[in-house]
Design a protein around this nucleic acid. Structure first.
Lengths: 191, 191
DNA sequence: GCACTATGATACATCTACGTTTCAAAGTTA
DNA sequence: TAACTTTGAAACGTAGATGTATCATAGTGC
C-alpha cells in the first residue's frame, strides 16, 4: 500500500489531521492503543488510516514530528524577542505548559519515534537550544554553576512533566502550573 | 492452571524470584516485552512462568507489590530513627535512588498494577506518608507554605525520576543523584 | 532409595492486532 | 455534468502473544 493521499484534497487533509489528533489522545491515554481505536477515535475508517500512514511506526513518527514542530512554533516568539538565559527558560515554561500533553505522549513511545532520523534531528536541536539557554544563564550569574548543565536540562524536562501531570489531574491550570514550575526550579521549596 | 507452586521448595522460590527480577529488567527496557522474553531472561521455561503467575497482569501486579515493599523496607530505618519533615525527605531521596529503577518500571505499567487492590493500598499509604512529611516540614517552617502539598509531592516524585534517569544514562551514580535532587528540590538552581 | 514436586520442551488452541485488497458510494474539481 | 479521488465497510491472510495440556527428566525431602 504505497498509496499517498493528496493533501490538497480537503477530505484527505481533514482525515490526516483527525488521525494525528486522535493518535495523541489515544496514545496518551493508553500507549498500547490499537490502530482500530485510533481510527474510531478519529471518526474515520481503519482502512483510511492505512491509506495515510503505511505502518503503526510511521503514524507515531509523524505524530512526533508534528508535536516537535508545535514546540518549535511555540518557542519562536521567545527567540524573536531575543530573550536569553533564565528569562528565556521562564518563557519556555509558559509556552510549553499548554502543549505539554503533546510533548509527553511521546514519553512512552519515544523508542519508536526515535527510530526516525528527522525526529531525532529536531529533538537533538531542541535539546541543544535548552542547553544553550542554561549555559547563558550560568554565564550571566543567574544559575548555579556547580550543577552540570546536563542535570539542569533533565530537571527542566521533569518539571515540565510535573506541571503537565498536575494539569492532567485537574489540580492546576496551565498558568499556575508554569508559575509553580518556575518558582520550584529557580528557588526550590525551602523557606 | 490453578496450580500453585510451593515456595518452600528451593526450586520454586528460585524460579519465582528469577522471574520477578527478569520482569523488572525486561519491562523496564520495553513495557511491551512478551512473557517469552521474560521467561528467557529469567532462564526458565515459559511454562514455568505460567505455573507461578496465572496471567500477565498477575505477574505485573506481583512485581509491583514486591517493588513497593522494597521501598517500604528502604524507608523503615528513616521512621525508626524518628526523622521528620525535610530531614526525612532528604533521607528518602538517599534510600530511594538506589532502588529507583524498581520504582519506575511501574510508570508505564501503572494502569495494570493499579488494578490490584493490595497494590493500590500500599501505594496510597506511601503517598500519604510523603504527604505527612511535607506537612511536617511546612509546620516546622522548613518548607514554603504557599506551595500546595500536592504540588510538592508531585515534585518529589519527578525529582526521583530525574535522578533515576541520570543514573540510567550513566551521567550520575546513586549518591550524587540524590545529592543533586535534594539540592535542587530545596534550594533550586538560582544563585 | 522412594515418593513427590517442579521443570523444560513441545504441541496445541485461541485471540487480537496488523496490514492488504476490493468495491460501491460520496465528495471534489474543472 | 463528467472525470477523478477519497472514503467506509467488509473480507481476508498473517504473525505473534496468551494461556493450556502433556510427559519425560531431574531435583527435593524423608
Amino acid at each position: 500500500m504505497k498509496n499517498k493521499m493528496n493533501i490538497k484534497d480537503p477530505r484527505a487533509s481533514r482525515s490526516r489531521q483527525a488521525l494525528l489528533d486522535a493518535g495523541i489522545q489515544a496514545f496518551l491515554q493508553n500507549p498500547n492503543a490499537s490502530l482500530t481505536e485510533v481510527a474510531t477515535f478519529a471518526g474515520v475508517g481503519r482502512a483510511t488510516l492505512y491509506r495515510h500512514f503505511e505502518t503503526r511506526e510511521q503514524l507515531i513518527q509523524e505524530m512526533a514530528k508534528e508535536s516537535l514542530i508545535q514546540i518549535d512554533k511555540a518557542m519562536a516568539p521567545i527567540y524573536e524577542k531575543n530573550l536569553k538565559g533564565s528569562f528565556a527558560i521562564k518563557a519556555m515554561f509558559e509556552v510549553s505548559m499548554p502543549v505539554a500533553d503533546r510533548f509527553h505522549f511521546l514519553l512512552s513511545l519515544w523508542n519508536i519515534a526515535n527510530e526516525d532520523t528527522k525526529v531525532r534531528e529536531i529533538y537533538d536541536r531542541q535539546l541543544n537550544e535548552i542547553n544553550t539557554l542554561v549555559e547563558q544563564g550560568k554565564r550571566a550569574g543567574e544559575i548555579k554553576s556547580d550543577m552540570t548543565t546536563t542535570w539542569i536540562v533533565t530537571l527542566i524536562d521533569c518539571l515540565i512533566y510535573a506541571g503537565w501531570w498536575s494539569i492532567k489531574d485537574g489540580h492546576l491550570d496551565a498558568k499556575s502550573a508554569s508559575e509553580l514550575a518556575i518558582a520550584s526550579l529557580f528557588g526550590g521549596i525551602q523557606t
